[in-house]
Structure formats: C-alpha cells, structure tokens
Design a protein around this nucleic acid. Sequence first.
DNA 1: TCGCTCACCTGAAGC
DNA 2: CGCTTCAGGTGAGCG
Lengths: 196, 196
Amino acid sequence: MATIVAWESRNQLQGGGGSHGGGERREHMFEKVVTPSDVGKLNRLVVPKHYAEKYFPLGPAARTSPAGTVLCFEDAHGGGGGDSTWRFRYSYWSSSQSYVITKGWSRYVRDKRLAAGDTVSFCRAGARLFIDCRKRAAAVSSLVPPAAAALIKVQLPPSRPVVDEEEASCGRRCLRLFGVDLQLLADAPPALDLQL
Amino acid sequence: MATIVAWESRNQLQGGGGSHGGGERREHMFEKVVTPSDVGKLNRLVVPKHYAEKYFPLGPAARTSPAGTVLCFEDAHGGGGGDSTWRFRYSYWSSSQSYVITKGWSRYVRDKRLAAGDTVSFCRAGARLFIDCRKRAAAVSSLVPPAAAALIKVQLPPSRPVVDEEEASCGRRCLRLFGVDLQLLADAPPALDLQL
DNA sequence: TCGCTCACCTGAAGC
DNA sequence: CGCTTCAGGTGAGCG
C-alpha cells in the first residue's frame, strides 16, 4: 500500500485538452500563487510587474487613466455550465507602482473558491486569453484542522495504478480521483487526511 | 537653592528667534498634544476641528475631494541640515467628520521621533507656514528607565537667574541650559533626574 | 444606510 | 544599502 498526496493538475496550459475550439495552440504566459490579499477583501489581484509589462502592456493613455482597460479571459476548461468568460478591469496604480486586476476579480475568487496559496495561471491562443486556477496541494498535516476531513485509504492494484497517460508533467505515478491527481509516494504512512 | 523642571522651549512660535528670514513676525496658530494614534501606525494627525476650520479652511471642493489639498510647512528652526520643508496632504474625512493630515505625516513623526504626549505646534508668517514640535516634559520618575540619566544640581545666584529675555511665553523664571529652558519651581526638592 | 468596490498609501522585504 | 516591488491596510464613494 502506498500513501497519496493530493495534487490537482487540471490545468491545461499547454493546450493538452484540445477540446475547447481555437485552432491555435495555447501558449502559457505566467502563473501566480495568490496571496491572502489577492483573495481577501481588497478585491484586487496584483499582477507581478514583470509579467504585467510583458504580457499585458498598457498604453500610455491607459497607464495614466485609473480606468485602465478591460481584459477578457475565457475559462481554460470551457463552460462548466457557467458563462466561462471573465471580464476584468486591469489598470496601473501609480501610487504603488503596481499593475492590478480589480473589477470582476472578486467574482472570480468567489466562483472558483480561490484561496490563498492557490495558483492562478494565464495563457493565450492567438488573441484569445484564458485563465485557469488550481488549488494548492493539500497539506498532509494541517496546522488548522479542516472543517470537514475525510480519511481516505486507497488500495492500489498490485501491478500498476490507473494513470492519466496525458499528464506529461506528472513524472511520478499518479492516480486520478475525483478529478484530482493523487501522487504516489512510497515508504509513507498508508493514509492521509484529504481536505475536501 | 531651587529645583528645576526640564522643559524644552525651542519653539519660536512668537518669532523670537528672528534668524530664519521672513520679514513678517510669526503668528502662533495652535498646538496639539499628539495622541498615540497620531504617532502610531495610522499615519495621520487629527487636526482638531476648531483649529482646522479656523486656520486651515478647506474650500467646498477640497472638502469633498479625497485629495484634499497640500500644506507645506517649514521647520520652525530652519534647516538643521535637513530639507526643513514638510509637505502634508490635508483633507477632510467625512466618515469621521474630522480633518486630518495624512501623506507625509509619518515621515515627520519618524524624523522628529515624535511620541505620544509630545506637542506639535503651528504658526505662520504671512503666507508661510511653520511647524514645530517639542518633547513632553520628562517625567521625574519614569516608568521606563531612561537609557542615560544625568543627575544635575543647579546652584542659582542669589539675586536673579540667567533668564532668556526673549521668551515671552515663559512667564515663570527660566534658566536656559543646553538649549533647554529650565523652569524654576520654589519649594521643591533640590535636585532631579534630567533625562538627556 | 450599509456593504462592496476602488484608489491611495506605506512598511517591509528583496535585490 | 538604496531602490524597487508588493502585500496589506485605509477611507471615499456608490449602489
């Protein structure tokens, strides 16, 4: 029996999914591990300046104006029933010399249940922009006990687990469970708390 | 022998110094004993409404605008080597119905090592504004032992002490020592700890 | 009127 | 260490 570390890998930044139209291949732009402020009451996402100026350059006019511009992103996984399109205000705050996504961001945080430590990623296919997010890896021993925890024991088949063959970035053996890639570690306790 | 209470009076609100240019005589406006909040992390000085409306009136436009206005003060003692000019944002907070100095204030607090209980004072000479501050009187028995304390005994001449004749506001007899006005009190112990 | 959003500000940390 | 960056606050305004 082996222990499992939950590790979500729903991102399809490299265009591995291929089910969502768009002839061009998706080009990964950047990711950010969101801070507590990014998902908190400040209602803004600070876009690291390096990435902002590289991927979302603002013209001189938009850079001066507090209105900035509007960026439209498609959900990287297409409509899961929702609209799958996200409109964000994107502007430059001269006072803090930083680029920020403001209007529309809090809705995204809420809808995606984004939490501090999660990763938001941006990619594009031609002129189309995509946004994606994934939860951070669940801690094996959480400092703060989760509100609800399920103790999950996984019995592995003797030969080879069910592996998602398409997941190129998953070098180690993976088991997909509830849409979550579970990463197999040898020589570890047989069970863990999965925070669901 | 008389006892001495340390009392700094480097302020030249009445224009007694006269060494820093400005043909017009300085007119004292008001003082405030700063609160812990005034020198804390709130980075703002609440200007008592009575004084604010009398000396720093905001036009209807500036009163509405969050930008308020900018007030420039010169250090009442001229350049001690520094810039000696202080730019503060001054505005009205409608939520608390109060007038506040915000931007630039924290720098002043830091540079002057302003602490709760100290006094900040404002005066003007024509259109020129001046700011000054003085430490609160040193406590005879300090709750926190000072880093360095000097026990000073002062022998007064029998007739009349050395009095700073220009210090109009010092109604009681004063002895200037190390640039500090020492205020003479009769019928008190002959010595005290002067926190230097 | 009150909660949500946004623009502004600052200290701290990192380079 | 000076300068840049940015996380975390704040009040004002609006719906």
